[in-house]
Computed example of a mutant assay.
Amino acid sequence: MTHAKKDPRVIRTQRLLRAALIDLMEERELEQITVQDIAERATVKRATFYLHYEDKQALLTQCIDELLNELREQVDTAESDYESFDYLSGEPHPSFVRLFHHISVHYNFYTAMLVKNRVAPFAEGLLKVIHEFVSRGIDRTEPDDGNLTARREVVVKYVESAFLEVIIWWLERQMPYSESDMAAQLMNLSIHGPYIRIPGRRNPQ
């Protein structure tokens, strides 16, 4: 079964409306934004907005779904990529780099959704993607529970929560470290924790 091609004019209008919503969300809270505001920023008529979306929530939902689906595709990694990667190389895994690259490319969107506004559906959806990413990575790199410092479900929850908060911190500070640097730091924290050596243990003389 073949799907009908979407009218380029429809695609263009929806892109304008999505961009307008994100622009406005960088300036003010979502509750203060009206459909009229979005239409004016997108340089279309209010009636045109309603040809495409029932309300601003429908537009927001489409924006969130599209971005999270794109992120999920970006960080999805084949089994062979985990098996062939050298974890002692000091280099971040490509999937970690792709995660931060996606955030960097869509900086305005992430900032609008997580910093300027804390949009619950987006934060929850992002956390779900990160959960899948972290859980899959830990399962593939270390299937033996005996080699984990805590129960697997606790490890996954700890790492995914840290991921989300670090991402928000990075956005709030306008990405002070590069994508690859952030990827390397987060990967090292995920695998080794915050310490190079056990705290309190003195170096041998």
Rank of each mutant, 00 (worst) to 15 (best):
A4L: 13
P8D: 07
Q14S: 02
A19C: 10
L21C: 00
I22P: 03
M25I: 10
R28V: 09
R28P: 04
E29T: 12
L30N: 04
E31L: 06
I38S: 08
A39G: 00
V44S: 01
H52Y: 15
E54K: 15
E54H: 15
L59R: 01
Q62D: 14
I64W: 12
L68S: 08
N69K: 12
N69P: 01
V75N: 00
V75F: 02
T77E: 03
T77C: 05
D81S: 12
E83F: 07
S84H: 08
G90Y: 14
V97P: 00
F100R: 00
H101T: 10
H102E: 02
R118N: 13
P121R: 08
L126N: 04
K128P: 00
V129H: 06
I130K: 02
V134W: 01
D139T: 06
E142L: 13
E142T: 10
D145Y: 11
L148V: 03
A150N: 13
R151Q: 14
E153T: 09
V155A: 15
S161P: 07
E165T: 12
L171R: 05
R173S: 03
E179C: 04
E179M: 03
M182E: 02
M182P: 00
M182I: 05
A184Y: 08
N188S: 10
N188G: 05
S190E: 11
P194V: 04
R201S: 11
R201E: 12
N203H: 11
N203K: 12
P204Y: 03
